[in-house]
Amino acid sequence: MTTGRFHKMHGLGNDFVIIDAREEEITLSGAQVAAIADRHSGVGCDQLIILRPSIDADVKMQIFNSDGSQVEACGNASRCVAKLIGDETRIETDGGIIIGSATADGAIVDMGTPRFDWQSIPLAYAMDTLNMPVGWEDLQNPATVNVGNPHVIFFVDDSASVELDRLGPMIEFDPLFPEKVNVNIAHIKNGAIYLRVWERGVGLTRACGTGACATAVAAIKRGLVSSPVQVNLPGGTLVIGWHDGESIQMQGPTSYVFSGEADWTRF
Rank of each mutant, 00 (worst) to 15 (best):
I193E: 00
T215Y: 04
T205R: 05
R196V: 06
A214R: 09
D165Y: 10
C213F: 04
A160H: 12
A214D: 02
N184R: 06
E199G: 13
H187D: 15
R200W: 08
T215V: 01
Y194Q: 04
N184A: 10
Y194A: 01
A192Q: 14
I185H: 13
V183E: 06
A216V: 00
P169N: 06
G209K: 06
G209R: 05
E179A: 14
A160D: 15
G209S: 05
G209D: 03
V162M: 07
F173V: 10
A192C: 03
V197I: 10
R200Y: 07
P175W: 12
S159F: 13
M170L: 14
D157G: 15
G201M: 05
I188F: 07
P175Q: 10
N182H: 11
S161T: 15
A212H: 06
G203L: 09
N184T: 02
A212M: 04
R200P: 04
G168D: 13
E163H: 14
V156W: 10
E179S: 14
C208E: 00
N190G: 00
C213L: 07
A212E: 03
G201E: 03
K189N: 11
V197N: 05
G211S: 08
S159M: 09
D157L: 02
W198A: 03
I188M: 08
E179G: 00
P169E: 07
V183A: 10
S159A: 15
E172T: 10
V183F: 14
V156S: 08
G191C: 06
G168C: 13
Y194F: 15
A160Y: 05
T215W: 06
L164W: 11
L167S: 13
L167C: 12
D158N: 15
G168Y: 13
C208N: 10
F177G: 10
K189D: 14
A186E: 00
D157R: 04
I171E: 13
V202I: 09
I193R: 06
I193P: 03
G203E: 04
I188S: 07
I193F: 02
P169D: 11
T205W: 04
D174W: 11
G203S: 12
L164T: 03
P175G: 10
G203W: 07
V162W: 10
E163C: 06
D158I: 04
A216M: 02
K180T: 15
R206T: 11
V183G: 09
E199A: 12
S161E: 13
P169R: 11
E163V: 05
N182Q: 09
L176V: 09
I188P: 11
E199S: 11
V162Q: 08
A207F: 07
H187R: 08
N190Q: 12
H187L: 03
G211L: 01
N182M: 09
I188V: 15
G168K: 12
S161V: 09
E179N: 14
A160M: 12
I185R: 09
C213H: 04
G211H: 04
I193T: 03
I193A: 01
A216N: 03
I185G: 10
L167Y: 15
A216Y: 08
